[in-house]
Simulated assay, not measured.
Amino acid sequence: MGNHQSDLPPRSERHGAKKNNQQNNSLLKDIVSTLLYIAFLFGIFFIINRYFYTPVLVDGDSMEPTLHNGDYLFLNVYSDIDNFDIVVFPPPDEEDEDTRYIKRVIGVPGDTIEYHSDILYINGEEVEENFLDYSVEGKDYYSSGNFSLQSLLGIEEVPEGKYFVLGDNRLNSRDSRSFGLVDEEVILGKVAFRYWPFEDIGFVE
């Protein structure tokens, strides 16, 4: 009988080719999995950014010492607004669509607001403003002065759908003392979280 010569490559070569195919398939699966994971993260970020939280950049020092120029924040766009929340809104007396103000809510609908010798009174009761760190720059830096809603705006209390806002840096802030009350419908959201700079990451109060 004559010798039969096979066209197949040697077994060692076949084994090597099979191993390479397995490695290539494994690598392809890893790449696809990574791309799907990245797409998933981008999708989650888009949904959060579009429907729940919006990133903003602090530009200026009117909220010192709480917020600093260059801070990056997330706004909660679906949250009730209460006293001392920090909110972002377009300036009520300007038409610049790109300008945004960031201030602290001092008075909500139904509140009476008064300042006497830098002491805040809401509805006749003294309220301590713990967010004003007098030890940083000295008390004069945060002076609120003496005023009431009556003397400032000619009203007794904050009307429904309006808010009275101030910057924490009272001597260097353009706020309700200048432009009056802020409409609830124009508020873009309240500050929830600071994500930059790294050393200041955390929730904002």
Rank of each mutant, 00 (worst) to 15 (best):
P109M: 07
N169Q: 15
V87Y: 00
I31C: 06
N3S: 03
Y72S: 14
A39T: 11
L41G: 13
R50S: 14
L8K: 15
S173C: 01
G60E: 05
R100Q: 15
T99L: 14
I81P: 01
D168F: 01
S173K: 03
L41N: 10
G202F: 06
N169R: 11
V56N: 09
Y101P: 10
E156C: 12
V191A: 03
E95R: 12
S151L: 04
S12V: 11
S151R: 02
F147D: 02
V191C: 02
W196Y: 15
E126Y: 05
E128T: 11
N24Q: 15
V58R: 06
D85W: 04
I48K: 01
F179Y: 13
L67G: 00
L67Q: 00
S176P: 02
D133F: 01
I119T: 15
S176G: 02
R11N: 13
S26Y: 13
G161V: 12
D59E: 07
L181N: 01
I81S: 01
R170Q: 05
G145P: 04
F193C: 06
I155Q: 05
N83D: 08
F84A: 00
L153P: 00
W196I: 12
A192G: 08
N3K: 09
Y163P: 00
S148W: 01
P159D: 09
N123V: 12
N49K: 13
E125I: 07
V88E: 10
D71N: 10
S143Q: 11
S144F: 08
P109K: 04
D30G: 10
K190V: 07
I31G: 10
K29Q: 09
Q22E: 15
L132K: 03
G2I: 11
M63F: 02
Y101R: 06
I47Q: 12
P92S: 04
D98P: 09
D96P: 08
G60D: 06
P90T: 10
K18Q: 08
I113T: 02
K139D: 09
H68D: 11
L57G: 14
Y142K: 05
V136T: 08
E97P: 12
L120R: 02
N169S: 12
G154E: 13
P10K: 15
P90Y: 07
Q5Y: 07
G70V: 14
